[in-house]
Design a protein around this nucleic acid. Structure first.
Length: 417
RNA sequence: GUGGGUGUAGCUCAGUAGGUUAGAGCGUCUGGUUGUGGCCCAGAAGGUCGGGGGUUCAAAUCCCCUCACUCACCCCA
């Protein structure tokens, strides 16, 4: 029986890892420009942390978490909760007024896998704690924008406001009344949704429902004064930074903790999974988890989805990490010498490989070619007798005899080590 | 949890009025080049045709069951 990876769990193969690194490195560069600090948190947490923060009756908590029931611990389905826990646990609010944090790592959700959605997937998670300024909302969105342009992928930004505990109940009532008036026109799912989370009816993808909700009351019209001012300021600041966006009054959130600003970077290139990055404000969350009364905002970016987008940009063929020097040897006595030489060259920082199984020279040259080495050192018995090796430039095919003692110096000069 | 699609060589895929030893390209290996890569040529290795059962003289091909993968719904990054 062949052992295979679990459904929804994927190996990231060497060629793809290069793209992943590109994403992660770009992210770290951009995040540093925005003065963020990386934090790494555990993958396992107490189940309660997630049920309390994400919401006990959300799909994630209800049926998608990998939980060790007997131990009451869960593999994180998202990172925000863990970061909040760490923030509270280490009293980070006391160290400086505003904490800008990010983390990159795997998340786990037991959903049915499909394109751009796995059971173990990876997110870049960015959070800022300690400021309620609408400037921050705009700054975070511009950060996402910068990251996408750094990577060369194009997405569009959609924003909305969900109001706050002061104004949302009123809107909810109005919306529910609107929905109930045309309940018989809506799909089965929406009828169910209208009971639990009427907001969700707004982003149903079915044509029939879309027509029905077209003229539904907009959250934005029901925002309280503070939320309204906040949203206007967010938009003004986005304009100030010249970040393009559209207001999507149908955009809602699946997680309970979001208030006020929500946003999504979407693309039409990923099939059903249009969101590459999504986030929003969660001003009451930290307090709810037993921490200080501190506002927060953050977003999560789906790395797999981003990598899929990058793959669409150009043909990424074999581009496995190459080496500088390949050592080809003839026979066993050469092998000892080659082995030692390889060790020495690695010691001065070169990327070196050889054929440990002493195959034919032809085979070794082939390996040298594929390895991407700029030079091949050929060691034979004749060369050993004369204390010389052949140095072959793999680009030009030019060969020179070099004294064994001069080899290191040659590479030192060539590669400027 | 629900629906559609696809499972043939390491990879991408041909292969239906059922019919001998199941094919191609790429990759791998060997040789053409007594110690030299890329291009070219020749050859070789590599397959329980996803698995099980059935129909038949005969099944990759037809029927049933099952599993895996995949896309989509739900939901979400």
């Amino acid at each position: 029986m062949k052992i295979k990876a679990l459904n929804g769990f994927k190996d990231i193969m060497p060629d793809d890892v290069l793209l992943w690194r590109q994403v992660e490195e770009s992210a770290r560069i951009v995040l540093e420009r925005f003065h963020f600090a990386e934090i790494r948190v555990p993958v396992l947490e107490k189940t309660e942390l997630f049920s309390r923060s994400i919401g006990a009756d959300t799909d994630i908590v209800e049926k998608e978490m990998y939980t060790f029931v007997d131990k009451q611990i869960t593999m994180r389905p998202e990172a925000t909760a863990s970061l909040m826990r760490a923030y509270i646990e280490h009293n980070m609010h006391g160290r400086k007024p505003v904490q800008r944090l990010f983390t990159i790592g795997p998340m786990f959700r037991h959903e049915r896998p499909q394109k751009g959605r796995l059971r173990q997937f990876h997110q870049l998670d960015v959070e800022v704690l300690g400021s309620a300024s609408p400037r921050l909302d705009a700054e975070l969105m511009s950060l996402g924008d910068c990251l996408f342009s750094e990577l060369g992928v194009s997405t569009s930004l959609e924003i909305n406001s969900l109001g706050c505990p002061d104004c949302r109940p009123e809107y909810r009532r109005v919306l529910l009344a609107f929905i109930e008036e045309r309940l018989d026109q809506l799909c089965e799912d929406c009828r169910r949704r209208s009971q639990r989370n009427p907001l969700r009816v707004l982003d149903c993808k079915k044509q029939g429902c879309r027509i029905q909700v077209q003229d539904a009351p907009s959250v934005i019209d029901y925002l309280c004064e503070n939320c309204s001012i906040h949203f206007t300021e967010v938009r003004r600041n986005l304009d100030l930074l010249e970040v393009d966006y559209t207001v999507n009054k149908f955009m809602v959130r699946g997680l309970d903790y979001y208030v006020r600003t929500t946003f999504e970077f979407v693309t039409d290139q990923l099939g059903a999974q249009s969101a590459v990055c999504a986030g929003g404000r969660y001003d009451g969350l930290i307090e709810m988890l037993g921490g200080p009364k501190v506002p927060g905002i953050g977003f999560a970016m789906g790395i797999e989805r981003l990598v899929l987008l990058l793959k669409r940009l150009e043909d990424h063929g074999d581009q496995s990490a190459g080496i500088d020097v390949f050592i080809a040897g003839l026979g066993e006595e050469a092998a000892d010498y080659s082995f030692k030489l390889m060790h020495g060259l690695r010691g001065i920082g070169l990327r070196v490989d050889m054929d440990l199984d002493t195959r034919s020279l032809k085979s070794q040259m082939k390996q040298a070619d594929r390895s991407g080495a700029g030079y091949t050192v050929i060691v034979g018995s004749q060369e050993l007798d004369n204390q010389q090796v052949v140095l072959r430039n793999m680009k030009t095919g030019e060969q020179t005899d070099v004294n064994v003692d001069a080899i290191t110096d040659f590479f030192n000069e060539t590669y400027g080590l």
